[in-house]
């Protein structure tokens, strides 16, 4: 996988007077109200570290006020971290001067916003070309690129319309197109679909997945919707009160919640849709005969059900043709029962 594209170490964001003094202090662990009372400060993000590999979709999930929007804004330094480092392709973002920072924002990182953030006074095509315009790309070139990207997100022919003439879903497609037009390495999504109704939201999620398959961008995706997180994320970070309470694959989060908070969240998740053979398999300890059907480790429990139903033998779980574990009807039943 190589070096991480985005690497954050010990990130803090504290709002209030003289915020630096709160970082790492004992006071930082005080309850919110008390901290505010004593210092006038509010900790939005506390001591967060994570790496995002190239091409990975890293989802940060949390309720409102958990600090996730602040976190994502520190990755392109729209918000200045109070402490900690952000490395983009190994380059220390906080050491950049204005000029370098702008350059990174122009070329490497694009962001998709919660309420779309389209410029109402510009045509759709000019909105999409906005980033290129900022970079100083010639008008004809940038409009050509914008048209192409619009086509990619399914809005061919809408270029001359104005944002207010589009539905919410279409507007966010424009937001997506605008982010893609720069051809950035990293895409930041700040709850992009929370304002959309469920059906359109699903379409948009599929759109992101298919783009991801085609373009292999590194994505950091903020959401408050666990289902969305599970659907999109290669890894998920659960955030609460400014810190990560758990980071893991969807399966890990669902199968082994780190604490009650996460467990509470994941309780209602239809586990069959998330858990894979790897999560419920038992190690091979000499049971014979190992001649049942084989499934891959990433097979969802959902898909296992018909197989265990049909087979009366133990099923082998293979990884690269190597048997790594076994699953039988009881294991599947148990996994499903835990759901209730």
């Amino acid at each position: 996988m190589g070096d991480p594209t985005v690497s954050c170490r010990n990130l803090w964001k504290v709002y209030g007077p003289r915020p630096e003094r709160v970082v790492g202090s004992a006071e930082a662990d005080l309850p919110r109200a008390e901290l505010l009372e004593r210092t006038g400060c509010v900790v939005a993000v506390r001591d967060v570290s994570f790496d995002v590999a190239p091409g990975e979709v890293f989802v940060v999930m949390g309720l409102s006020g958990s600090g996730k929007s602040t976190l994502v804004r520190m990755i392109n330094r729209i918000h200045e971290p109070t402490a900690g480092t952000v490395l983009i392709d190994g380059e220390d973002l906080r050491a950049c001067d204005e000029e370098q920072l702008r350059e990174i924002r122009r070329r490497k990182i694009s962001m998709v916003f919660q309420h779309f953030g389209l410029l109402p006074h510009r045509r759709i095509v000019d909105n999409v070309a906005f980033g290129l315009e900022i970079q100083g790309v010639e008008k004809a070139d940038r409009l050509a690129i914008a048209e192409r990207v619009l086509e990619k997100v399914g809005l061919a022919g809408w270029g001359n319309a104005y944002p207010e003439e589009l539905s919410g879903g279409m507007q966010q497609r424009v937001g997506l197109a605008r982010a893609l037009a720069n051809d950035p390495e990293i895409l930041l999504f700040d709850e992009p679909f929370s304002a959309l109704d469920p059906l359109i939201r699903r379409d948009m999620q599929d759109e992101v997945l298919s783009l991801q398959r085609d373009l292999k961008k590194t994505m950091i995706f903020i959401t408050h919707d666990l289902a969305e997180a599970l659907k999109l994320g290669d890894r998920i970070a659960i955030m609460k009160d400014g810190r990560f309470v758990q980071v893991g694959t969807p399966e890990e989060v669902v199968a082994h919640p780190a604490d009650d908070y996460v467990a509470d969240f994941t309780r209602d998740v239809p586990r069959a849709h998330v858990l894979t053979a790897r999560a419920i398999m038992r190690p091979v300890n000499g049971e014979a005969p190992l001649d049942g059907p084989t499934v891959r480790t990433d097979t969802l429990v959902q898909a296992l059900i018909p197989i265990v139903a049909d087979a009366d033998r133990t099923i082998r779980v293979v990884d690269d043709d190597r048997v790594v574990g076994v699953v039988d009807r009881t294991d599947v039943m148990r996994a499903l029962v835990e759901e209730a």
């Binding site: 920072l101 953030g117 906005f130």
Partner: peptide, 15 residues
Amino acid sequence: TTLEVATSFGSTSRQ
């Protein structure tokens, strides 16, 4: 948000 949009795409203050 609109200002953030502009900043996030690397606009200068003048832009």
